[in-house]
Write a protein that binds this DNA or RNA. Structure first.
Lengths: 207, 207, 207, 207
DNA sequence: AATGAATGAGCCTTCATTCAT
DNA sequence: CATGAATGAAGGCTCATTCAT
């Protein structure tokens, strides 16, 4: 029994990523209900049993999927508004970045918020949960920083970031569940309006 | 063929309600994934087959649950702010009514928004879906009316109601998924602040 | 508790017949698989429990249905060829009568031959079974008599009647299962040809 | 992904055959109504779920059972009368072969003719159905060929084969349902007599 | 590293039947 | 005479997971 060579480890990582890709594809196509281990294995070109070599359980896959989704979100946010100099433009760019990320990929929102009941309590242990929370926070940090740069106290910036986040999430939910049609409104327009209103209030020292 | 006496009908209704109560209890305790017919029957003190005497399918139960939840929501909203005379107080009372309803009963939000993927398309036929949408709209109508009474155009009132709704829903989601703790914020406080801010903007003719 | 008046008994009989009519209708429309007590009750305008007042079990209904079917068969056979004087014409008329009866009502054949596995052993007790056998024999008796009138011994007539019956049944089965299409043949034509051939053999003293 | 070794494939096939054997045994003992997946699994020493590893559905098992039955029938027919030189002896041998096959295995007849209503339309897709029809035809082809060899036109041979088949099937049905006892006749004797009569008619150019 | 085989628990639903009222 | 209520058993099928090979 020899230790695993670097090369072997690298191969394992590649295959693990392949399984995750398959899981994401299945998840996107069939939703959480259709995303069985069978289906994921099929998409990955494996038999169901093989999946357990890479992930301990279905929920571990879910956790990894979520973690990876948050990385991509952070990438998107990091890339956004790099050219913008003033904080206001920064805020708009960063906020739009995460909003659009979820607007374009509804399933990632499901993932990101544990919307799926059955998944909530199990599987995601406290440590992982905190890591994920932290990465989500990271994605919002640029907005918070921009608000501080615009003159808000740390406390106020955090509060407004939370509210901004909630507003976006609410709109996304209304959008994805089709409820927003009931009001004849458009989620993106409303989100942009909220950001503009927020900047206006900041400018007028109302916050 | 004898006609069903009123008394018999009443008892049937009671039992049907009992099944629905059991379903709600199971749903609250186990989430939608654990809410099997078996479990609902067990909670109601029945064998699984008996459930079908009262509801045609699992999804019919889901629909009834949702319908009933919306009725209670509307009741709450109708009762709120009955003493308030000015529209601003009306808005605050009505908005708080529905927000608190969901803040107090997390699972009703799941129910109300079809957060559960698997349930979305099936079972809820178009007619029922429209009815439910309509009842949800009813619960928000008082807010919309109050905004109009405060001077907003119909269009603006609708837009702001949508935004208000989204804001609340977002906060509720953050609250129920525990994500709001990450920000060290309180959902209810933030919601109240949003309502106050909204009234302020209305007063200043910013909308 | 008074004895049942004649009138009451008559009413009961009428209702029992009504249930049987419903059963036949259901049986014809849905086949043996769909013919549940529920469905029969629905067709009869009763609740399932009421059925058991008239029949002890589902299989009792089946037995009654079969008995009644055989009565109708015998009626048809009795009416056939009443004008025919010579035995040959008699044979043709009587044989066609029962063949056509089943050709026109495929389900009665199922009924008549216990084609349905699940029903075979239970329900039909020996006495009833013998009665039914006897009535079936009755329907064939005219053919047997005609053959004897044509000069066959009792033994030969019985043998030929059996063969005739088997031939018809086989053709009916091929017809009802669609297998006859495979041969591009027509069941009725073949049956008629068989009868003619039989008469020919009788005439030529080949039997 | 390693390829399945021949040995592994062979073992899988053996187990699949084992399941089919179990299914046949259950089918023979309990009839089609009692032939549940649970029961088949029990007979095969499996849990119900395991059955689905070998067959996609209950009806797939039914189809396989039928296909295999027809193969055995064809084997029997192919082996019969190999020593016989003249067409008349061929006809007798081949006809007896298939008649005896079903006389000895009543349930195979049920299977072969879709006697069971519930099974007819579903599961057996058109392609399979045609294959099965074709194999059934194959079993009768030698009889048809013998008749042609005896001088019948193609058309007449087909007609007589159909009639022969129907006659046999009818007798088998009378035998298996016990109805033939009512006439005090023996199915095999009658069948043989029919074949002899057929040959006689052919010889005398009556057909 | 991966397969093929299998488990056991669970899913929703249907059914014939019983029985108090 | 008939209902409404309920049972208990069974139906086909799917699933996450385990494990010898």
């Amino acid at each position: 029994m020899q230790a695993k060579t670097e090369r072997q480890q690298a191969m394992t990582d590649v295959r693990r990523a392949l399984v995750l890709d398959a899981a994401r594809a299945v998840f996107e196509k069939l939703g959480i209900e259709g995303a069985s281990i069978r289906e994921i294995a099929r998409a990955a070109g494996y038999t169901p049993g093989a999946i357990y070599f890479y992930y301990d359980s279905k929920e571990a896959i879910y956790g990894a999927l979520l973690a990876e989704s948050l990385e991509r979100l952070n990438d998107k946010v990091a890339q956004a508004g790099t050219g913008a100099l003033d904080p206001a433009a920064q805020l708009e760019a960063k906020a739009s970045a995460w909003f659009d990320f979820y607007a374009d990929n509804p399933r990632e929102l499901d993932l990101g918020f544990y919307l799926v009941q059955g998944m909530r309590p199990r599987g995601l242990n406290a440590t992982l949960n905190e890591q994920l929370n932290s990465r989500l926070h990271d994605a919002l940090q640029p907005c918070e920083a921009a608000l501080q740069a615009l003159g808000l106290t740390g406390e106020a910036a955090l509060r407004e970031t939370t509210a901004l986040f909630a507003h976006g999430v609410g709109l996304l939910l209304l959008k994805h569940t089709g409820r927003i049609r009931m009001f004849g409104q458009d989620a993106t327009l409303l989100f942009d309006a909220y950001v503009i209103g927020l900047l206006e209030r900041v400018r007028q020292r109302l916050i």
